Each structure stands twice: as structure tokens, then as C-alpha cells.
Deep mutational scan, measured.
Amino acid sequence: SKGEELFTGVVPILVELDGDVNGHKFSVSGEGEGDATYGKLTLKFICTTGKLPVPWPTLVTTLSYGVQCFSRYPDHMKQHDFFKSAMPEGYVQERTIFFKDDGNYKTRAEVKFEGDTLVNRIELKGIDFKEDGNILGHKLEYNYNSHNVYIMADKQKNGIKVNFKIRHNIEDGSVQLADHYQQNTPIGDGPVLLPDNHYLSTQSALSKDPNEKRDHMVLLEFVTAAGITHGMDELYK
């Protein structure tokens, strides 16, 4: 796709999030870079409003799984890469995230190029959380598991539907599940690639910047598309 050509090198990323969870309002600002050749993201996020009212790991899918245009699609799968094909005009990404036995996040993001920078601007609203639950009670460990993110075409809306389940580790050794339902639709009216069913395999590492006084998260992530085999004719070339 034409959009794919915008991702040949390292691309700067800007992320802006405004959130409200159970009436606790907050903002997060992030910057870093993405390299789609390797499916690599390096980002640093800062809570610009003081202390973040929710655990950082609960925002990873909104912040970095928010820029799935940096996923590495192998050559034989490039015609299934909706995310890059929607660029530079970008796409709207909407999600509902259900935390098992707790509340939910609803998010709406616009992901697009502004100049040479890929920008992810998000509004997040969280409701029905227990004040002493795993999320508002800050009981999650500061780490992140690997996940597969399942993608299918949504021809009606000229976009994709995505769903997956995140496993958050809790300090007591148990797990907090979070079910994600995602819809992506193009902002522009140019042609986009509608994929066959496949998935993104994601690995994320969270860390801290020892010199950063503000509440923050440093993230390194690798994302690769998989799940579609080479056609038989490919094998015999």
C-alpha cells in the first residue's frame, strides 16, 4: 500500500491521552519512536497531572497497542496490513475493555500522521470500578505478559474488528483478565486493505527511568503479524 511507504525508516511517535476513571481525571503524554521494519516501539509516557489513578499496565493496550501500524508484517502478509494502508489520513480506533469482576474502559483514538510524526490521540472513560479493586486499589504488578491480538475484516465499515484477552499479573500471584473489543475505521476515503483473519504477536517490557521524578512508564515492545501461511505457489519458487 502507499501508506506502507511512510514506515520504511524510524518514525517519531506522539501520544496524548485524556482519561476519566470513576471521576478521577488524568492526562498522559508520551513520545518515542517506531520502526515497522522490526516491529519495534520505544516509548516513554508521563502522567502530566500528577499521580496516575490507575496502574500503568492497564493503559498499555490504549497507548502502544494503539499504534499497531508499527507491527512488522512479513512480505507474504503485507496485503493484510490494514493499519499502514489507512495512512497518512489514519484511522479511528474504538475499544471497550472489560476488566473481569470490575469496571470497564471505553476508548476512542485517532491515529494519524501530523507532518512526519505518527500521533495517537485518545479519550478514555472508565466506569463501575471498585475503589478497593485491583485497578483503583493499585494491586497489579508492574510488568506485562505476551499476547496474541486477533484481527478480522469488517467489510460493512471498511475497517477491521479486533479482539483479545489481556492477563494482568496481580501482586498476590493471581491474574486480572481484561477482555478487549476493538473496531478500526479509516478517516480518509481512499482504498484500504481488508485482511484475511490473522493475529499480531506482541511482547512488551515495562521499565522506569531512574532520572524521572514524575509518574511515568518506559515501554519497549515488539509486534509481529502472523497466522497466514505462504501460498503453495510461494513454496515452490
Rank of each mutant, 00 (worst) to 15 (best):
K2Q: 14
G3D: 06
G3A: 15
E5K: 14
E5V: 04
L6Q: 06
F7I: 04
V10L: 05
P12L: 03
E16G: 03
D20G: 01
N22D: 05
H24R: 12
S27T: 13
S29Y: 14
E31G: 08
E33A: 10
D35H: 12
A36V: 10
A36T: 10
Y38C: 14
Y38N: 15
K40Q: 05
L43Q: 01
T48S: 06
T49I: 02
G50R: 01
L52R: 02
V54E: 01
T58P: 00
V60E: 00
T61P: 15
T62N: 01
G66S: 00
Q68L: 01
Q68P: 03
C69G: 03
C69S: 04
F70C: 06
P74H: 15
D75A: 08
H76P: 05
M77I: 07
Q79H: 12
H80Q: 10
H80R: 06
F83S: 02
M87K: 00
P88S: 05
Q93R: 00
E94V: 05
T96N: 11
T96A: 09
F98Y: 11
F99Y: 05
Y105H: 01
K106R: 09
K106E: 07
K106G: 04
T107S: 14
R108H: 05
R108P: 00
R108G: 01
A109G: 11
K112R: 11
K112T: 11
F113I: 04
E114K: 11
D116A: 14
T117K: 08
T117S: 07
R121L: 05
R121C: 04
R121S: 05
I122L: 05
E123A: 08
E123G: 04
G126S: 02
G126C: 04
G126D: 00
D128Y: 12
K130Q: 11
N134Y: 11
I135M: 03
G137R: 10
L140P: 02
E141G: 09
Y142H: 08
Y142S: 06
Y142F: 07
N143A: 11
N143G: 15
Y144S: 08
Y144D: 04
S146C: 06
Y150N: 08
Y150F: 08
Y150C: 07
M152K: 08
A153T: 13
A153V: 04
K155M: 06
Q156H: 10
N158Y: 06
I160L: 10
K161Q: 06
V162E: 15
V162G: 08
F164I: 06
F164H: 03
F164S: 03
I166S: 12
H168Y: 06
I170N: 13
E171V: 07
A178V: 10
Y181H: 07
Y181C: 11
Y181F: 12
Q182L: 00
P186H: 04
I187A: 14
G188A: 02
D189N: 06
V192M: 13
L193R: 08
L193P: 07
L194V: 06
Y199S: 07
L200H: 02
S201C: 15
S201R: 11
T202P: 02
S204F: 01
D209G: 01
E212D: 05
E212K: 00
K213M: 11
H216P: 00
H216R: 00
M217R: 01
M217I: 04
F222S: 08
F222I: 06
A225V: 05
A225T: 05
A226T: 13
A226D: 10
G227W: 10
G227V: 09
T229I: 09
H230Y: 15
G231R: 10
M232T: 13
D233V: 06
